[in-house]
């Protein structure tokens, strides 16, 4: 990480989000894109530090203290990359739009982390549960689009008597029943 990046003060997105902190993870629902994300403890810590006043290096020090790991800067960069991809950051553009330079796998390799220790670095996971969608008596258009075949088996679209959720190529789309 360059010194320039180390002094950046990222800002987390706070609008149009529903956030729920659980025992060991934080769930975030993006009301604009209708996507759910799960942040592990480290990713949540990085995200909460993105207040526009805390520098990347300060967050790295915090993360090193919390997780008892060195190389906190690489971990923070990995976390920021993932948060940016999940559209959970507002500027600065260097981070928000950056092509990920530190994939999570690369960070794990660099730090030599395996087994349980591999759970420590930041992880932002998109939450999809096809079976939950199957359980619903109808799907919203957004829920339908979030599925992939074979999980769209013609479930009705809520509030639209003539539309069903059907496979279209490799995705699921709202279509006439």
């Amino acid at each position: 990480m360059t010194d320039e990046l180390a002094e950046l003060m990222p800002l987390a997105r706070t609008t149009d989000l529903v956030v729920e902190a659980l025992r060991d993870e934080t769930l975030v629902y993006d009301l604009r894109r209708h996507k759910a994300h799960c942040l592990n403890r480290a990713a949540a810590l990085v995200w909460r530090s993105c207040d526009g006043r805390t520098t990347v290096s300060a967050t790295a020090a915090l993360l090193e203290g919390e997780l008892q790991l060195s190389s906190g800067k690489a971990l923070v960069r990995s976390g920021l990359d993932q948060l940016a991809r999940a559209r959970l950051l507002n500027g600065p553009p260097e981070i928000r739009g950056a092509r990920p330079r530190y994939s999570r796998r690369a960070v794990l390799r660099a730090l030599g982390l395996t087994g349980a220790a591999a759970l420590l670095p930041p992880l932002v996971e998109t939450v999809v549960s096809p079976v939950a969608a199957e359980a619903a008596s109808c799907l919203t258009p957004a829920q339908c689009r979030a599925l992939a075949p074979p999980f769209c088996s013609g479930q009705p679209i809520c509030g639209n008597p003539t539309s069903c959720c059907r496979p279209r190529r490799l995705s699921c789309r709202q279509a006439a029943c």
Partner: peptide, 13 residues
């Protein structure tokens, strides 16, 4: 677990 996560968010919505 994934379903539980989605249900947690859905409850807030």
């Amino acid at each position: 677990r994934q379903t539980y996560r989605l249900q947690t968010l859905e409850a807030r919505l």
